[in-house]
Structure formats: structure tokens, C-alpha cells
Write a protein that binds this DNA or RNA. Sequence first.
DNA 1: AAACCGCTTGAATCCAAAC
DNA 2: CGTTTGGATTCAAGCGGTT
Lengths: 395, 395
Amino acid sequence: MRLMSVVRKGAPRRAPRLSGGVDFAEPSRAIPTDRILIGDCVEQLASLPPHSVDMVFADPPYNLQLQGELKRPDDSRVDAVDDAWDQFESFEAYDAFTRAWLLAVKRVMKPNATIWVIGSYHNIFRVGALMQDLGFWILNDVVWRKSNPMPNFRGRRFTNAHETMIWAARDPGAKGYQFNYEALKGGNEDVQVRSDWLLPICTGGERLKDAQGRKLHPTQKPEALLARVMLSASKPGDVVLDPFLGSGTSAAVAKRLRRHFVGVERDETYAAAAAARIDAIEPLPEAALVAPPSAREAPRVAFSALVDSGLVTPGLELTDAKGHVRAVVRADGTIALVNAATLAVGSIHRMGALAQGAEACNGWTFWHVEQEGRRHPIDVLRARLRAEMGIRSEE
Amino acid sequence: MRLMSVVRKGAPRRAPRLSGGVDFAEPSRAIPTDRILIGDCVEQLASLPPHSVDMVFADPPYNLQLQGELKRPDDSRVDAVDDAWDQFESFEAYDAFTRAWLLAVKRVMKPNATIWVIGSYHNIFRVGALMQDLGFWILNDVVWRKSNPMPNFRGRRFTNAHETMIWAARDPGAKGYQFNYEALKGGNEDVQVRSDWLLPICTGGERLKDAQGRKLHPTQKPEALLARVMLSASKPGDVVLDPFLGSGTSAAVAKRLRRHFVGVERDETYAAAAAARIDAIEPLPEAALVAPPSAREAPRVAFSALVDSGLVTPGLELTDAKGHVRAVVRADGTIALVNAATLAVGSIHRMGALAQGAEACNGWTFWHVEQEGRRHPIDVLRARLRAEMGIRSEE
DNA sequence: AAACCGCTTGAATCCAAAC
DNA sequence: CGTTTGGATTCAAGCGGTT
């Protein structure tokens, strides 16, 4: 965590620095990381050196074009996203805005960097077409399926239950981009991760509130979503840029996963709240993040889903039934053996087999967690998650 | 199935007619249905009367043929916008093609018709943006999640496990489009249907094969997908247009679901195979397709009709569900609040709203009558009157 | 203590017939 | 055409208070 330590040196618990432009205390042409730049993203990005970020996550305005107000069947009013920053005069105006920030972002991307952009049907088609026009090379579109979306109250459309993320390389033919295929697969029951992800929206304690207890930001994204993005397409020490930082979810997750962040935010209230939020984050132990594994195996249902759900926390210790063998849960859903002579990282099944010297192992029954002084197989956590998710949600 | 019978009259088991243009045997300006038009879809659609189809399903080609040009070595220029030039030319050609067929399709859509377009990340963003540019009004984007997608063999991306459908109305502000909300909900555990659908890809016996046993068409869609589309947004007797018929899935499903189809296909081999396929389809029994009575479409019954019919007597007391609020029925079909400080008289809805301090209220469910010691919403009386009226009207 | 109930809320392009 | 009025319409979670 070289660059992270620069900012935190001598002030380990202070908030990230807020800056209106380039920080000249930084080495010339080195990108100032782990801070929030306040201002218009196109202007702010122009002050950064070219080819300096490894990954971009962008959550631009969606241009919702809402008409009147909407009420629930119980006559309560839906708190719509009617903020000024989401208003555009026309598709042309939105396109010009989009083109400008995409170009500004592209300049600061390293040749092998990739970009993620999230949106809904209101804007994602325009964004995707412009990305193609500007020479980005789409690698996947990834669907975020919301486990608890807002329903369609009037019964006139399908429940708008997903958002779309476009994952793209900077240039056509890019081959050296970061994609942690084996780690993702190892955390997904050794099955390739698909282009549709099921995750809940951001509610409860994770949702930032203002002094009056109202939601601070209308469109705060869940940390689990950003964690999947960064665990997929970046590595510890990378610089992650977010040109529309908002409530700071991407920066908070970057810090937790030991990536560096550069955030741009126009609204000072949002920026200040994000800074405080980021400051409170404690990075995960490095052991929970290092070294992608190389694995191959069989069965179903993802251990990483337990991590996403919060039932299992990265860093949690797993043991066998008798407590002799120990392992640590990693953020991507793989586990690392603790007492191994060499670093051993992989799926719960493969690591279980390795620990026993067996060819195969059912990690769900081999590994245990200690709760209230008693050891339970992690299979009970899986059963709990299945129960929570219900029959409909993940067919 | 009026129009269907025109084609099948005198030749009940023959294949749909193949035609190069307008069939002059049809009544002038009536759209020729249940046949395949062979040729370029823009040209063929120009021969059809305007405002003549109820729903469109389009699975356009997206072979951009860009691979060769785009795989040249990555150069080191700082600004890669120039790189996009060649591909912009190619994208432009695709855009021109897309714009042309979308306009041709729009002309033949009825004002309340809707269109579905399916695609992948290669083309769907361009198609969606152009649809917005041409004035279509997006209602939903619907994700087809493939339960058995093709794996990603090289491990450099996520498994491409979905395709995207855009569902749009012909014009902004369209409200009268067909959407079978209640039927869909009824078939989905009484929960409204979401924008992500899980369905297997087309394999096995459903997949058309050529004489050599190879798959006839590279992108044959599963009939289950088309069935969900048509069951969602059309009704029996509707005319469904498919400008890129291919192997004929949409027409086959339309016939089975007792919709009429108009298919356009440029490739004669595909058209012939589709014709044979469609010919073998047996429409489902009408009883399997009739729409269940929906509350939204039920004939309106005024509260005064209950008074007129004698089901409700002037002077009868109404209360809310808990018996706190009381009102009295007046002879003209209005009601009067009993405990109001000032005299309050009006419709069951207005008085219900007033009693609650709400802006709106469904008086049919708010107000109750006491019968045999139990409270029933007055909606049950309305249902009884509707039943009696239904019996009378059929006599 | 665990279960249960009621209330709140989330990126939303969310009515239709009659007058 | 605009305006008024009837009356149809919601799912999953989290949280707090009660049983």
C-alpha cells in the first residue's frame, strides 16, 4: 500500500484530503491518490497526468426524465430522483455531456485499464453507443439484478429490477487488462462467474443519512456491488478512478480492498460526507487479498454469496471439525490456508482437500466456524442464506 | 382467428404463402397476414399499409464485421480518438441500417403498438440509442438470463449469460399499449413479473437442423422466450410483425398463441424452413388463451346503480373497516359523513378521502356494510350487481 | 428471548374514462 | 382539447415496538 501510506503518513485517522486541483506537494506527474477532487469532473481530470489509472468506475447521471409525482397504492409519495444534476435539456445535451467525460476519463486511463459504467435503460444505451464511438472496446455488459427492487406501483410495466454495467477496455484489441478469472471462479464454486449478478440495493445501516435522518444521496450504490467490480478487474495497489464519486462507495470499497482511489465530486456536501465515510474504513488484512489462486473443481452455490451477504466476513477464520486445520476467508470468496508451508489459496473445496491430503473434499461440511463457543459447519450458513434469499430469487 | 382463416381457407394444411410483395387478393389496405414476405425488410414493409400491426418483435443481425480492422496492433498515441475513425465508419453503416428498418417498422405500427428488439452488447446500445432518437418510448429493458449459456472458453471475460430486449412504445406518452399485467402476475405466484427472465437457450428437438444435421440458423431463439413476449404484450387476434424472421420462431409462436403474423426474411432457405415449421404448428385451444377478466377492464358500475338496483337502500349506514368512521347513503348515490363538523356530502371516493385526510381513496374498498353481524366492503355488493348484469346481458 | 406486527422506503420515464 | 373524477395499484427489507 505504497501510495495509500503517503496520504495516511503522520495522520493515520484523518479524512481524505479535499482539493480543488492538483496537489503540488505530490511528485510531478504522479497522480494524487486517496483524495477527493472537488469540481466538474472534466476540468478536474484535465489536471491529472495521462495514463495514470488502472480502473474506472463511473455512475453518471441517468437522465431519468420523470414526469409528475408517483404514489404508492397506500397513497404515500415516492421520493423521486428530481435533483438538478439529473436534468438535461435533450438527448443531444446528454450525449455531449457523456462524450466529454468519457474522453476526459479515457485520457487518464493506462493502456490496459478498464472502465465500468453503470446505468439504466434511460441512459445506458446512449452511453454504450458513445463508448463504442469513442473507441472503447466492450468486454461484457453485466446485469445487476436487484433482490429487493422498488415495485411497479401502477402495474403498467415489468418491475424495473436491474441495472446494467458496461465493462470495457480502453482500446480495441486490448489483451493485458486485469481480470481475476481464477479467483472469481474459485469463489463461485469453481464455476465461471456469469454476466448477471444478484445483489440487494443499499439500505439499512450502510445507507448514509443527513442530519435530519434522510438519505444523504438519492442513488447510493451498495458496497457489495463495487467490491465485486474491483475484485474482478483490479488488484491491490491499483488506482481506481470514480469521476462521479457521490457518497463515496467506490472509494470506501477501494480503501477496504487496498486499492488507491481518485474521486471527483462536484457537490461539496457529498464530498465531505464521502471523506468522513472513507476515513472510517479499515483496510482488510493483506492476507485476505493477496495472490490469485489457480484452481479447478466441481459442485454448486457460491461461497462468495455468503461473503456478499455479510453472513461471512473477509478475515473470518475457518477450521476443520476438530480445530486442527485453519484457514482465512478472503474478500473474493476464496480461502487461504494459515499453516501451509507455501501460500495456498483457492476454493473451500480445494483447500479442504489440500489440508487433508485428499483428492477431493466437500468444503461445506469440512470447514467450520466458531459461534458462541461452538463449531458449526459452514453448510448451515449456506442453508441460512438460501432461506433468506427465498426460492424465487435465485432459480 | 378471422384473418388466419383467410389464408388457410381451402388449403387448411398447406404452408404459409410466400410472396414478393402485396397480395392483391387481400382487401385493399388490409395487411396480408400469416405469410412470409421474402426480401429486404425495408422494401417489403414499404408495401404494407400504415398503422396495421399490434406488436413487433425484431431480432436484427449484428455481424458488424469489425474484427479484422480492429485487431491491428495497439499504437501508442496519447489520444486514441483518431483510432475510432475506421470503426466509426463501420458503426455508421450499422446505424444507417438500423435507422432504416426502425423507421420502416414504425410506420406500420398502430399508435398503441409496442416493439421488442433483442440484442447483445455488440449492437443493443446502438439500437437502443437510435430507438430513442427516432421517438420510440422505452417501457422496459428486459434481460433474458440464459440458464445454460455458452461458457467463455478463454477465461478472459465473464460468461456472457444474457441478452437484452428493449420493449418500447411507438411514441412518447403512449398509454393504451397492451400489457397483460394481471395474467402475468397470476402466473408468477401472484408477484408482479420482473425485468429479468430466466429461460434456457434453444437446443434439442426445437432447434431446426439442415439436411446435414447442422443447425439451420445460428441464432434461433427459444419459443418459450417469444411466448413470454407475446403473452405479455399482445392478445389473441393481434397482428405480430417480425422484420427478421429467420427460422420463424416468432411466427410459430404467434400461430400457436392464435396471433396473426407477418414475417419478412431475405434468405429463401430460412424462409422455406420457417414456412414448413409454421405449417406444422397447431394453435392452442382458445380456452387456453382467453384473457381472464381483469379488474381494470371490468365495466364501470356507479354506486348509484347499487341504490337503483335495491342492493343498497337510502339511509343505510357505511363505516370504515374498523367501524370508526360512519356515513349514510343518500338517495342520489352520494353519501354523507355522520360525524363531520360541517355537512359533508359527496361520492364514496371523495368522502373516503375526506374521512382519512387523504388526497384520494377507493371508496369501494374503504367503505363497509354490516350484514349478519360481519362487515363486508361494499365492493362485494358491486361484484354481485356485476354478476346479475352479466347474466341479464347474455339473455 | 423469539416471534410478530406495523411502518417506512427504494434511480420510476407508472391510469383512463368522462365531462 | 384540457380538466375532473372514478377508482386501481406494491415487493422485499430493515427497523422499532409489542406480544
